[in-house]
Design a protein around this nucleic acid. Structure first.
Lengths: 260, 260
DNA sequence: ACCTGAACACCGTTCAAGT
DNA sequence: ACCTGAACACCGTTCAAGT
């Protein structure tokens, strides 16, 4: 051992600490930066350069400001990334039945849709945001994910699953099956697309290249048959098919094991 | 834009490049380091300090050697992490029916087990290795994961799913549902345990603390009922129940939608 | 209230040099 | 063949100072 015990930092969360931005008195406008602008620039940079290409110094440069200015608004890089995380989670369009009736809205729409339809919507929105922001999965794995938008999402997911007919003590299992699946699926789909963008190559080209390199090192006869049976001419079509039917499997499982 | 286009590096893989260690002539023993020792120390350090606590300089110190010595054996930090990744994937005990009969073994055991049993074994081994090495999920998301042990695992997973009765063009969906679920589940389970170890707190303590902080910021009446119905007195029991039943859901879904 | 500049303790990696 | 040491171009963050 070199340094003895160096503890893994018991990382705090933005959502559990005081907000750093002070309340402004009166009309006094801030010049230059603010929280919104900083988080927006963060997400732009993350989308463009990936998590490993993002740094406080690069962000400052992007904002036309010195390296340390951002720290007046945000406590640490981790806190900033948590803000970006929750902002991304807020981009999902959730079924209104699940998030509760809107404030201004007096009557809910005539007939609430089937829980399966709602589940498919939430899952598909989650998938889409994971693919749109490939850095999101890493952050979801890193932080507690208890920001306001994340909580709305979790409540929506819970509300939908409660309508599935699954008994109360099985709800968390159903949630885990569906959303951990979507998380994993969206993660690799997003990373694959990002890799293609980065190397300036189409998804089909990279796909066939990867198949080629794996081909050498395994008895491929079995796997090849499966891959060919997979159907779909573009990678996107294959992914859509896989995703849709995997979700059908999960739904069928829930219907098979719900209260009988 | 500050620097214009800075591409996300189209990262290479250890498995796609020549091995750096030269063949040794004759009996000439290497002094000090070697591949095995380096990868072992890497995994020890990763287990103890986490991915963010790992650095080439810390590793060198651990090995009692100067910062740059490791680079004689390994091209980059990324390549070293890929080696650790595949070594971890090799720790799983896979059903022998799925990896093929062992070389020396003449007759396979009397009756091969049910595909459901085999699926549960592979899933449970995958879960366990993800929990044992909490850094594994991040690396699985980062690299291509085409090392020899990873390929064995994928073949085993494929072999089991082929016995499920799912038609050929649905196999990839079944694989995605099951293993993306296990990946996500193992990831958060492993991170949670690591967090507890790091702050020197029991899983139950951290669990109740987190429930407490979330309690404030949502209409918790619904969610509380679900969490209490979840059953199990320890966190470990809750997780085991959730995992087992989620897998049951997936299996039930596969049985419901397989060729009829 | 907001932003800067210098400095500290880190990184991964290159490269020339030692034995 | 194997290991070192100095150096380069980066990090996140602290802290005292400017306006």
């Amino acid at each position: 051992m070199a340094t003895g015990s160096r503890t893994v930092r018991p990382r705090s969360s933005v959502w559990l600490s005081e907000r750093k931005t002070p309340k402004r008195k009166g009309d006094q406008q801030p010049v230059g930066l603010d929280h919104l602008k900083i988080v927006a620039a963060t997400m732009r940079l993350l989308d463009a350069e990936g998590l490993s290409g993002f740094s406080m110094r690069r962000l400052a440069a992007e904002l036309g400001v010195t390296a340390m200015s951002v720290y007046w608004y945000v406590e640490t890089k981790d806190h900033l990334l948590e803000l970006a995380l929750d902002a991304a989670m807020g981009e999902m369009a959730l079924p209104i039945e699940a998030v509760g009736p809107a404030e201004g809205l007096e009557h809910t729409p005539a007939e609430p849709r089937d829980w399966r339809e709602q589940l498919r919507q939430v899952a598909s929105e989650y998938r889409r945001v994971l693919v749109r922001h490939p850095w999101l999965s890493a952050l979801l794995g890193e932080y507690l994910n208890i920001g306001p938008n994340a909580v709305v999402f979790q409540n929506a997911a819970l509300a939908v699953m409660r309508n599935s007919g699954l008994p109360d003590d099985r709800i968390t299992s159903g949630l885990a099956l569906v959303y951990q699946f979507v998380y994993g699926f969206g993660t690799i789909e997003g990373r694959f697309a990002a890799r293609c963008r980065a190397s300036g190559v189409t998804q089909e080209e990279l796909f066939h290249e990867m198949m080629g390199t794996v081909e050498d090192r395994m008895e491929f006869d079995e796997a090849r048959k499966i891959m060919e049976a997979r159907g779909g001419v573009t990678v996107q079509e294959m992914q859509d098919r896989d995703f849709t039917f995997a979700l059908d499997l999960a739904i069928a499982g829930i219907e098979a094991l719900r209260e009988r």
